[in-house]
Amino acid sequence: MKITIIGFGVVGRGLAKVLYKKKDELEKNYGEFRVVAICDRSGAIIDEDGVDLKEAIEVKEKTGKLINHKKAKKVDVLDVIRNVKSDVVVEVTPSNLETGEPAKTYILESFKNKKHVVTANKGPLALYYKELVEEAKKNNVYFRYEATVGGAMPIINLAKENLAGNKILAIRGILNGTTNYILTKMEKEKVDFETALKEAQELGYAEANPSQDVDGLDTAAKIVILANSIMNLNKTIKDVKIKGIRKITPEALFLANKRGYTIKLIGEIKEGYLIVEPMLVPIESPLNVKGTLNVAMFETDLAKEVVVVGRGAGAEETASAILSDLIWIKKRLS
């Protein structure tokens, strides 16, 4: 399988590291996974015989730009999609929750050129899910996006494959590790929101501008993807009622604890409604996970409640979900 990677930030490099590290094991179990092109904003490395992943990672991590690689050229991403012979495009550029660009254009162009797509990018799916899925179908290509929700956690594939035949009545969960870390810190150490946020930023859990996380937008994008892909709703991020965690105080957490509850930022899909807001969660509930962990609970007609817990972010964790989608496609192309 020939792969083009678009975006070589934390997630793109995470995937390259996993493909390099597991090369022999993957080849033995599934056949060859050969990366023939890697693009970032500065340019692209293209090699039909396979890009030297170790070298590409080193150049990017030392210099910040792929163009500094001896084989790199200044070339437009759309030209790479159109002209480089590959089976799958892995789209892992930064998420844009306002326009979904440039990822949306890259994905549609890949479909037009009969290339399967695996993405970790929430933006286009939170805004244009229906259009993207229909275009993939029209062009008879696979479109996989397990990595858009919950990092390493198999949420979408679990619901669609392992719980096939079940009617999923509701989905709720903690889908953002940054907010969970902040609330856990506030609860355990009785510190205020600003202090907990500052520590989350120092540890690299929160961005310099943390609004996507703490104001609930990241969770909202994820529940839109779950609502559309698992429950066949046709929603966008504009349909979600969103409230973040900035107003939560240590006192509110203390009072909740006294009554046998904690407070968590929960994303919920129930009876067609999509909500993201801080909610009271019983202390003994499976939804009460700590630190940066994520959790998703499915309420189903046959299997009743099914819960999956795991790491919702991180380079290797997200690469794990991308790799599972690549293997899924590879099996169908064999």
Rank of each mutant, 00 (worst) to 15 (best):
E202D: 14
L265M: 13
T105I: 10
R172L: 07
Y273W: 12
I155R: 12
K238D: 13
L53A: 08
R34Q: 14
F8R: 10
K185C: 09
K104L: 05
N228Y: 04
I263G: 05
G150A: 04
E48C: 10
G244W: 03
N288T: 13
E284K: 15
A136T: 08
S285G: 13
Y142V: 06
E48S: 15
E305V: 06
V118K: 02
N139D: 02
E207F: 11
I107M: 04
Y30A: 10
I67R: 02
K290C: 08
P282S: 14
V80Q: 00
G314M: 09
Y273A: 14
I283F: 10
D87Y: 00
L78V: 10
R13M: 15
Y30C: 11
V281Q: 08
A303K: 15
M279R: 15
D301V: 02
A56E: 00
D47N: 15
V141P: 10
K130V: 02
L265W: 01
V80P: 00
E305Y: 13
L158V: 06
N288I: 09
K304D: 15
I322M: 01
L233S: 12
D52R: 03
A72L: 02
E161V: 12
E32Q: 13
E109M: 00
G151M: 04
V214G: 09
V35Y: 01
V80G: 00
G14Y: 06
K243A: 10
N162S: 14
K28P: 03
I182G: 08
T93K: 02
G291R: 15
G204F: 08
A256W: 00
K167H: 11
A136Y: 03
L78G: 12
A208F: 03
N294P: 00
N121D: 07
E316F: 11
V18W: 02
E134C: 10
A256Q: 08
G272W: 03
I38H: 05
V149W: 04
V89M: 00
L163G: 10
L125R: 08
G291V: 07
D218G: 11
R41T: 14
H69W: 00
I5S: 00
I3D: 00
G291T: 11
Y205K: 11
L127F: 02
G260Q: 08
D76L: 05
V276W: 07
A16R: 08
K70M: 03
P210D: 13
V18I: 09
M186L: 10
L293T: 11
E161A: 12
I182Q: 07
E48V: 12
T184P: 03
C39A: 04
V276L: 06
A319V: 03
I45C: 02
T292S: 15
N228F: 05
K74C: 03
V307K: 03
L217Q: 14
T178N: 01
E251G: 11
K54Q: 13
I174R: 07
N157Y: 12
H69K: 01
T184E: 05
I329S: 02
A152Q: 13
K112Q: 12
D192V: 05
V92I: 06
N288F: 04
P124Q: 13
I107V: 04
E305Q: 14
E101Q: 14
V141H: 04
